[in-house]
């Protein structure tokens, strides 16, 4: 009997997972000091993403589907053809990777007060997915394993530096209402 109960115990231990809290982690920017002047960022370096109160997406002035967002962000951040209307790259020296071109692209996310939280999270999720995929690609190219499987701390830090999460959320404005 004891054997059977131990068998069951191990079975449940192996099949059930501890219910941990999970989610999308973000870092909020500190409050801007009142004296701060607006920072000038070149137009080509900004991808404007707008979510309106009906949860529709507007990227660079064009309405797009949420499914296209990831690819749009990926091409924006990686700028494969070094096009002039896509973000500039800056050659940086990163420990573990050497000299590498880091995109100066910033995603500017703006939502309405009436946007639903579900839609907002979907957009955040797609943006994160785009960054994660780019990191995976770079990691595979440089170290041969996906980013999530990188055990070396220096290597994963280098990848994080080479492809930063460049999402800027605009200062909230009161538009659109409830």
């Amino acid at each position: 009997m004891a054997d059977i109960s131990f068998l069951l115990l191990t079975f449940f231990l192996l099949t059930s997972s501890i219910n941990t809290d999970q989610g999308i982690t973000r870092k909020l920017p500190p409050l801007a000091p009142a004296t701060q002047k607006s920072v000038n960022i070149k137009d080509r370096n900004v991808l404007k993403v707008l979510v309106n109160k009906s949860d529709y997406l507007l990227v660079q002035g064009k309405p797009i589907n949420i499914k296209e967002l990831k690819e749009t962000v990926k091409t924006f951040l990686s700028n494969p053809g070094n096009r002039a209307d896509f973000p500039e790259k800056e050659i940086k020296e990163i420990q573990g990777l050497g000299r590498i071109a880091v995109s100066k692209g910033v995603i500017s996310l703006k939502n309405d007060r009436g946007t639903s939280y579900g839609a907002y999270i979907q957009v955040q999720n797609e943006l994160t997915a785009a960054v994660n995929e780019l990191r995976n690609e770079l990691s595979k190219q440089k170290f041969g394993v996906p980013f999530t499987d990188l055990k070396d701390e220096i290597a994963s830090e280098a990848i994080t530096k080479a492809i930063p999460v460049a999402i800027s959320e605009a200062e909230p404005e009161n538009i659109g209402g409830k």
Partner: peptide
């Protein structure tokens, strides 16, 4: 942001 609690997590 005012309370300087910058690390947040959107639970999903």
């Amino acid at each position: 942001r005012k309370a300087s609690a910058f690390k947040i997590n959107y639970s999903t």
